[in-house]
Design a protein around this nucleic acid. Sequence first.
DNA 1: CCGACGATGTGTACAGTGTACGCTTAAGCC
DNA 2: GGCTTAAGCGTACACTGTACACATCGTCGG
Lengths: 238, 238
Amino acid sequence: MPESAKQREALTRDAIVTAAVSLADDGGLSALSMRNLAKQLGYEVMSLYNHVANKNELLALMADEVAAGIDEPLDGAQPEIDEEAMAMIRSVAVSARNALVTHPWAAPLWQRVMPGPARIHFMEILLRLFDQAGLPSDVAHYGFHAVVNHVVGYTLQEQEMMSNFDESDDLDDLARTFLSGVDRERFPYTVAHVEQHLAGDTGSSFELVLDLILDGLTRLDGTRSRDPGASMTALGHT
Amino acid sequence: MPESAKQREALTRDAIVTAAVSLADDGGLSALSMRNLAKQLGYEVMSLYNHVANKNELLALMADEVAAGIDEPLDGAQPEIDEEAMAMIRSVAVSARNALVTHPWAAPLWQRVMPGPARIHFMEILLRLFDQAGLPSDVAHYGFHAVVNHVVGYTLQEQEMMSNFDESDDLDDLARTFLSGVDRERFPYTVAHVEQHLAGDTGSSFELVLDLILDGLTRLDGTRSRDPGASMTALGHT
DNA sequence: CCGACGATGTGTACAGTGTACGCTTAAGCC
DNA sequence: GGCTTAAGCGTACACTGTACACATCGTCGG
């Protein structure tokens, strides 16, 4: 076999991951099958398994590849005041969000596979910033969860809507399809809500809610609520 | 064939959905195949397709079944003050969270399938409450998103961790496995964070973050803000 | 030089998935 | 009886991940 004539690249772990990412970028995760991937690379299916244990490991590597694309806030910078730390947290969150938006298939993966080195690095940066922001450690702990959850969850909801729903690639068409099936008499608020989306005057609620969370966290610093069960006190009365 | 002798129930849409739910409750979504489901019901695979268009429709029906399990806050009750409305929002959110916890497979579905009648009903209730809480309409709009996203996203992250990760069914074992692969020198904060989880002193951060969000929303209402909280402008938010 | 060896590529095969298609059987109605 | 319509079912197809055996290679010790 004159395989030397073939101009295919060497089959390495990195080449496989890169091809898988680009294959998922257009076509979504469902377009990524091992056979498909092998064909794209010019090899046969089982050759992939010499460099990747199984598809799950490949998916984990892909997720970490996305995590590696998150920008860090000025590498060695030490925030001097708490507000600076919070601002850096914000920028990291926005950057992570951007990474997930660029690769719509990544958000589902993010919560399904074990974090790789790049994502652990990202966690470390965020956790350190929370510590440097001067928050009490328990607030920092679930503040981290709140921010990460918002970044992943918000993007997930947004993207899965667009990509996984039936045939339409357009979000507006989708919303209209949804509206046409809803009883406008019985569900006026729902109809109004979706129409607000269609009107487009609800831009990036992502950053608004992010600020809401961050703002709430800094506020909890001073007036820390103690009993987690009866947290209605956090709503302001009593 | 003496199929009359078989004591199987009539094959109806509801029976199929119910069986599918219980099949997914133990064993997870991966245990739900059409063949499996048919066997459970005592029928053959293709018979299911007389009552359900395809597996996707079945999944949508299952998701809506879960949505139907969300409690409403005292059916006809009209909140008289804004704080009451917020409290009702909170209770609906907690109830929705409980429904998702009871059926761990539901959270992933929730964002993947079109909302059915029960979930639309749930959306309507929540949106009406946001309106009754006296929030400005834009705040109500993304407040709704913030709450729903938190409920689904938080549960999703929690559940997918437990169910989809490798072999261990125990979350502690999982965390320990994770820790053993992390460089404690390079990632001290990450290690500390996970160990906080292992120590178990981070109980239900779900409700804490929920209150954080709800509290932030009421504070954003200009008419009732009593605090010149300048932290948001300090964060550089335009 | 030569045989052994380990890494890599590949062909075949298997169990599993969703579901299209056509046949059979039963129920209701004229 | 004859017809229509719905429901159950058997077979078949395309597709998935991957286990396993085998072929081909470059390298190294003798």
